[in-house]
């Protein structure tokens, strides 16, 4: 059951990272394009605004997959010393605190996205670029992360007290 849920979430998390990667590539080309354009007095309009939006995509797109890969930063000092039971408790604390924090964050981000939609929020510059996609990226990226954290929490309970591998890096 948990495994099946994981098999559904993982491709979604991967897709989110992929989108972040595409965003990163876009900001690389745009930045370079703007630099070259500026040399010929033709800067790329909107390069700055699009780069800002892709940043949001990168940061929030990577959240869930980073969780799957155990890449999020934590102080492992006590964890490495702990026995299997204590490790399970610590994992539960980690999952729960993540769910609470990102739950609140997603709730607020959802309200902001709604407001952004209502006022037609867009950047002001030579070109006007809508901010709604970036706002939605926050909600979806953080939301997916919460789903993964919930799944991890269930796994923590299901395998309570069993020894588990912990890999660094």
């Amino acid at each position: 059951m948990l495994d099946r849920a994981q098999r559904i979430i993982e491709p979604m998390a991967f897709l989110a990272v992929l989108l972040g990667g595409v965003g990163l590539m876009i900001s690389m080309f745009l930045g370079m394009g703007d630099v070259i354009g500026s040399l010929f007095n033709k800067p790329l309009p909107g390069a700055l605004e699009v780069t800002e939006s892709t940043m949001v995509l990168i940061v929030f797109g990577g959240l869930a997959y980073a969780q799957i890969r155990q890449r999020h930063l934590r102080v492992e000092l006590a964890y490495l010393q702990a026995g299997p039971k204590l490790r399970s408790v610590m994992d539960i604390v980690a999952s729960l605190s993540g769910i609470v924090f990102f739950g609140l964050l997603t709730w607020q981000a959802y309200n902001e996205a709604l407001f952004s939609y209502q006022i037609g929020e867009a950047t002001s510059g030579l070109v006007s670029f809508p901010l709604l996609p970036a706002r939605i990226a926050v909600v979806l990226g953080a939301g997916l992360y919460i789903v993964q954290l919930c799944l991890d929490l269930l796994k923590d309970f299901a395998t309570f007290g069993q020894p588990k591998d912990f890999e660094l890096g």
Binding site: H72, V75, Y79, D91, V93, A94, G98
Partner: peptide, 10 residues
Amino acid sequence: LLISGAHIGV
């Protein structure tokens, strides 16, 4: 939270 191994940002 830090000692329990919760994520640092969280």
